[in-house]
Design a protein around this nucleic acid. Structure first.
Lengths: 339, 339
DNA sequence: CTAATTTCGGAAAACGTTTTCCGAGACCTC
DNA sequence: GAGGTCTCGGAAAACGTTTTCCGAAATTAG
C-alpha cells in the first residue's frame, strides 16, 4: 500500500534489517544466498523485504563489488537497420545470462562517441562493445575504452589499435559479389558502377577496396552509409548520362536508396540497372525488387561476443579476432541470368 | 605512458590528492568547480589529474549525490524503424544537455521489459522513458517504474495507470487517412481492407478503432507491428479472392510488408491495391512505390520529453499528457485521384 | 565432561565520491 | 591594534551495499 506517488525509494537495506530485527549483514546474505543460513531466518528477512517493497540499490552494490553486471554497447547510428539488428541480437544474447546491455547511440559523431565511452567507463561497465564511427578518428575513443575495461570492436575496427574484434570477412563477401556479377557482366556492354560508403570505416574501406581491385576500370562514387547518399549517388549516375549497368554498393542502405531513386525516376531494376547491397538487413527482402546482398551471421557473431566477454578476464593478451564468413543472397535486383 | 594493457583504472581521487599534495576535498572541488579556489592550486590539481590520467568513478559520485545524470529509455523493439528513429531523436535531444540516455530493448517481451525497469531503477536513473509493450500487461512494469522514479510513457500508454504521456493523436491521424480515402473510395467498387497490428498497444488499438468506426463494413485483419505480419496479411487477402482495394494499415512496417508481398506476387500498388501506412518511417519514402502515411513530429516530441524531465521534480501531480498532431503525407501508394 | 570444531549472526571496514563542518589565516573597519 | 568578517584548505561523515573478521553458541570428538 503506497501512500502516494511520492514514494521515494528511500527504503534501504537498513530499513529491512530494522523491520526484521536483524543486522544488515544478515539481510544482505539472505538476499544474495552468499552464505547458507537457517531457513526460518531467511524466511523472516524475505518477508520484511516483501513487506517494505525493498529494491536493492545497484549503485551501492556496484561500488562495493567493483562490478556492475552490465556491458555497454556503442553504435554509430541506430537508424541504420543493420546496426539495430546487431544491437537487438547482442542484447538478446546477453539477456540470457544475468548481464544487462546498455546502448548508447553516437549519432555518427566522434564527439558523442567519445562521450559515450566516458559515460560507460565512468559507470564502471564490466565490458564494452563498440562499433567505431571512424577507422582513424575513433582511435582516441577506442584506446580510452581499452585502458579502462575489457573492450571489443564489432563490425568495424580502428587502424593501429591492438584490440579484439568480431566481424565478418568483407573481402570474402565482396569476392562472392564479384563472382556473381562475373556471370553476366562481361557478356553485356553494361558498365559496372561502384557506390562506396563509409570509406572512413574499416568495413566500408575493405569492401570498396576489394571491388576496385577486381574492377579497376569501374566508375566509383564514394559517400557514407545512408539512404540519402544512395539516392544522391543514383542522381549523379543519371546526370552522367548513364542509363544502364550493374551497380554494386557497400551497404544495403545505400543500395536501397539507389534503387528508390532509380525506380521513381522511371528506370527499372533489374532491367536497366542491377543493384547489389551488403549486410542483408530486414528490408532488403522487403524492397521491390528484393535486393541481392551479402548476409552476415548475426547470431553467431553475438554468441562470439558473449563468450569473449565472459571468458576474457581482462587478460589483454587474449587479443582474439573472430572473423565470420558471409554468404551471398541472390534476389530479384540482380538475377543471375540475362533478362 | 601506460605500462601495459592491464591498466586497471585504480587511480582514484585519493591518488590524485597524494600526487598533488592536497586533500581529496580539494581535488573534488577543483574538478567540480563547486566552490571558488585559488587559480594556482586548481592548476596544480588539474595537472596531477592529467598526469595520472584520472577519470572520476561515476558510481561513487552517484552514490553520494543520489543522482546519476542519466535517463533510461525502454523500447519494445529496436528493429522497428519508428522506434529506432524515436530513440535517436530522444538521445539527440538529451545529449545537448549533460544527461546521458541509456537504452534497453525489451525485445517485445514483457519479462524483459520488467527486467529493464528493474535494471534502470536499481541503477538509480534520474528519469525513465518507456514505450510499453502492452496496453494491459505492461501495467506492472510501468507501475513499478513510477514508484521509483519520474516516469514518462511514450507513444503508447498503459490503461488505468495515471502517468504522464507523450504521443500523437492517433484518432486525428486516422481521421486524416479516412478523409483521404473518402476522396476516391466511394467512387469505386473497391473494398476497404483494414490491417491492424499491435492491437494490444494503445496506439494500435486507437488507430484500429477509429478505422473500424468510420468504415464498419470493411474486412479487418489483426496482427502485430511487423513486416512479417504485413506480408502474411497480404497473403490472406489474396487467398480470399480479393484482387483490388484500398488497404489501410496501422503502421508503416505492416504497410511495407503488405506492399512487398503484393508486388512480388504480381499485383500493382497503387493500380490494384492502394496501401496506406502510419508513422512515416524513413523507408516509407524509399519504398517503391513510396508510401502514403501519417507523420509524427518526432523532434517536437523529443523536446517535450526533455522539458518534462528537467521540469518535473518528481512532483507527481504534474501528470501532463502532451498529445501532438500528426500530418498526412500522400505519396505514390495511394494517389488522390483515379488512375 | 572437557576440548576441539563447526555454525552462524553482528560489528565494522571497505568501495570512491561529495559536502558539511571546522579552523586557521588574511583582510577589513573603526 | 583589537575585533570582526571573509577566504579557503582539510578532516570526516555520509551515500547503500558486500564481505571480512570476530566471537558466541552449538555441535561433535575423545
Amino acid at each position: 500500500m503506497e501512500t502516494s506517488g511520492l514514494g521515494r525509494d528511500s527504503i534501504t537495506i537498513r530499513d529491512v534489517a530494522i523491520h526484521a530485527g536483524v543486522s544488515i549483514a544478515t539481510v544482505s546474505r539472505a538476499l544474495s544466498r552468499n552464505r547458507p543460513m537457517s531457513p526460518q531466518l531467511q524466511e523472516k528477512v524475505l518477508a520484511s523485504v516483501d513487506a517494505l517493497g525493498y529494491r536493492p540499490n545497484l549503485v551501492g552494490r556496484a561500488l562495493r563489488q567493483k562490478k556492475t553486471s552490465t556491458i555497454g554497447l556503442i553504435v554509430p547510428d541506430l537508424e541504420n537497420p543493420f546496426f539495430s539488428a546487431l544491437t537487438q541480437e547482442v542484447s538478446r544474447r546477453f539477456s540470457k545470462s544475468g548481464t544487462d546491455v546498455l546502448v548508447i547511440s553516437a549519432d555518427n559523431s566522434l564527439k558523442l562517441e567519445l562521450r559515450a565511452v566516458r559515460a560507460f567507463l565512468g559507470r564502471q561497465v564490466d565490458g564494452l562493445v563498440m562499433i567505431p564511427c571512424d577507422e582513424i578518428e575513433s582511435g582516441e575513443s577506442v584506446h580510452l575504452a581499452s585502458t579502462g575495461v575489457s573492450t571489443l570492436q564489432l563490425d568495424r575496427f580502428v587502424d593501429g589499435v591492438d584490440l579484439s574484434f568480431v566481424g565478418c570477412d568483407n573481402t570474402a563477401g565482396m569476392n562472392l559479389v564479384i563472382k556473381h556479377i562475373n556471370e553476366f557482366v562481361d557478356e553485356t556492354s553494361h558498365p559496372v558502377i561502384i557506390i562506396g560508403g563509409g570509406g572512413s570505416t574499416s568495413s566500408g574501406r575493405e569492401r570498396l577496396q576489394e571491388l576496385t581491385f577486381h574492377r579497376p576500370s569501374s566508375l566509383v562514387f564514394d559517400g557514407n552509409f545512408s539512404f540519402d547518399w544512395g539516392r544522391q549517388a543514383a542522381a549523379e549516375i543519371l546526370s552522367k548520362g548513364i542509363r544502364s549497368g550493374t551497380i554494386v554498393t557497400t551497404a544495403d542502405v545505400i543500395a536501397l536508396g539507389v534503387t528508390s531513386a532509380l525506380t521513381t525516376t522511371g528506370y527499372s531494376v533489374p532491367k536497366d540497372f542491377r543493384v547489389i547491397g551488403f549486410d542483408d538487413v530486414g528490408v532488403a527482402y522487403l524492397a521491390h525488387p528484393t535486393l541481392t546482398t551479402v548476409s552476415q551471421p548475426l547470431t553467431d557473431m553475438a554468441d562470439s561476443i558473449f563468450s569473449f566477454m565472459i571468458t576474457n578476464p581482462q587478460s589483454s593478451q587474449h587479443q582474439a579476432r573472430r572473423i565470420f564468413w558471409p554468404e551471398l543472397v541472390v534476389r530479384e535486383s540482380s538475377p543471375a541470368l540475362h533478362i
